[in-house]
Each structure stands twice: as structure tokens, then as C-alpha cells.
């Protein structure tokens, strides 16, 4: 079980149809941009957001929603863990091999 922390949180999942990383917005829908994610200031807010996300999963819109710790910066929320930062930003490498 994930450790409960005091850090602000956003809720994320993968979209069922294409597996894309999505973030739960204040409107209760999903965006592929973490900048659109609604930041939950406390555990109660995160749990409520997860409730919305689980209902979405039950409607076969997304897969396996969970909450992610973030820092809130001017550009928007930034995940604290490398794994989630990579999920938000995409692979840290040039994904297309280059020919000489």
C-alpha cells in the first residue's frame, strides 16, 4: 500500500482505449496535460477525487487510477517521484532512433 504523505496530490490513470497517461481535472474529466490536473491539498480531497476517478474506471474510461504526490509550481503541479515525472513528461530520451 502506498505511504500516505502530506504532500499535495493529483489523480492520474491510463486511458482505457489507448493507454495514454491522463490527469483528473477540476471538472471531473481527464486531460493528457498534468497542467490541467486539479491539485488536492489534503488526503480528504485526494480521496474524494479518487472516488470520482474510480467511478470513471467503472465506466471503462480509465484503468487503475491513483493519487500522485506533487509540488505546486508556477507552471503547474510537478510530480515528486521520477516515475510520475516521466509519466507526465514522456520518456526522458529521444524516442525515435536516429540514423547516422
Amino acid at each position: 500500500m502506498a505511504r500516505v504523505t502530506d504532500a499535495p496530490k493529483v489523480v492520474t490513470a491510463n486511458r482505457l482505449q489507448d493507454g495514454a497517461v491522463v490527469w483528473l481535472t477540476a471538472a471531473g474529466d481527464w486531460s493528457t496535460r498534468i497542467a490541467d490536473a486539479q491539485v488536492q491539498a489534503d488526503a480528504a480531497g485526494a480521496e474524494a477525487a479518487l472516488g470520482i476517478a474510480r467511478a470513471s474506471a467503472a465506466r471503462q474510461e480509465v484503468v487503475e487510477p491513483y493519487a500522485v504526490d506533487v509540488a505546486v509550481e508556477a507552471a503547474g503541479p510537478r510530480p515528486l517521484k521520477t516515475r510520475e515525472w516521466i509519466r507526465a513528461a514522456g520518456p526522458s530520451i529521444d524516442a525515435i532512433p536516429t540514423a547516422a
Partner: peptide
Amino acid sequence: PLRLMNGLYLQLHAY
């Protein structure tokens, strides 16, 4: 389990 029997994983960014 059905998708795994067909080699399909869900990874970080996509299937």
C-alpha cells in the same frame, strides 16, 4: 490475464 496471453502489457505511457 487475457491480454497478457496475447503479449499485451499496460506500461507507463501506453500499451
